[in-house]
């Protein structure tokens, strides 16, 4: 019996588009993937800038749907959602970063593990793409940075801001206390 692929027309158009883009990203995985001198990150835009977070902190990229807004919550809280049976808070990355502008309304939530034993979700405008950042440059940039991001300049003067999730969350807590 020949196994038929599942009919892609069965999904909503935006979901099809999302899946196609995901597949494309995976196909585009760079050739230097095996290079151990690289820190693998998920790279995505926020407004005019490019941000990245270490791939090992990324648990999932899910469509920004089924989020329940939380009235009376701090403005950087988009809402809550269920993820693998847990209730997870969705946070606005642009708001956490201090009110950046944005090009497209975020359509994706990145479920991340900042390292304090629970998950949070951060919004972003597009599905992140995997890329590698040289470990040496990352170490140097981290040593210089005291904030929630560190700036890394890549070939062609391309700037990537690598997020330090723990510091980002600390900053948010600091803002709340104030």
């Amino acid at each position: 019996m020949k196994v038929q692929p599942r009919d892609p027309g069965g999904f909503a158009p935006e979901l099809n588009e999302l899946l196609a883009r995901r597949a494309q990203r995976i196909r585009e995985k760079p050739a230097e993937a095996e290079d151990e001198n690289l820190l693998w990150v998920a790279e995505f835009p926020v407004g005019e800038e490019t941000y990245a977070l270490p791939l090992d902190t990324l648990r999932a990229a899910v469509p920004l749907k089924m989020v329940t807004p939380v009235p009376l919550s701090p403005p950087h809280v988009i809402g809550i959602l269920r993820f693998q049976g847990q209730i997870v808070t969705a946070l606005s990355l642009a708001s956490l970063l201090g009110g950046r502008g944005w090009r497209e309304d975020p359509a994706v939530l990145l479920v991340v593990d900042p390292g304090f034993g629970r998950l949070v979700a951060l919004d972003c405008e597009r599905i992140p793409k995997p890329s590698g950042l040289p470990h040496a440059q990352v170490a140097e940039a981290r040593a210089l940075s005291t904030g929630a991001t560190c700036e890394i300049t890549l070939a062609g003067a391309r700037q990537v801001s690598l997020l330090d999730l723990l510091r980002l969350m600390d900053r948010r807590q600091g803002q709340e206390k104030r």
Binding site: V70, P71, I80, L81, R82, I87, T89
Partner: peptide, 27 residues
Amino acid sequence: IRPLPVEIRELAAYQGAATLARGELVL
């Protein structure tokens, strides 16, 4: 009814959240 995540647990308005039939959360 489940407790809210730590990020919003301080909100005095809510006791927690629960999952409705279609998987959406209700405060």
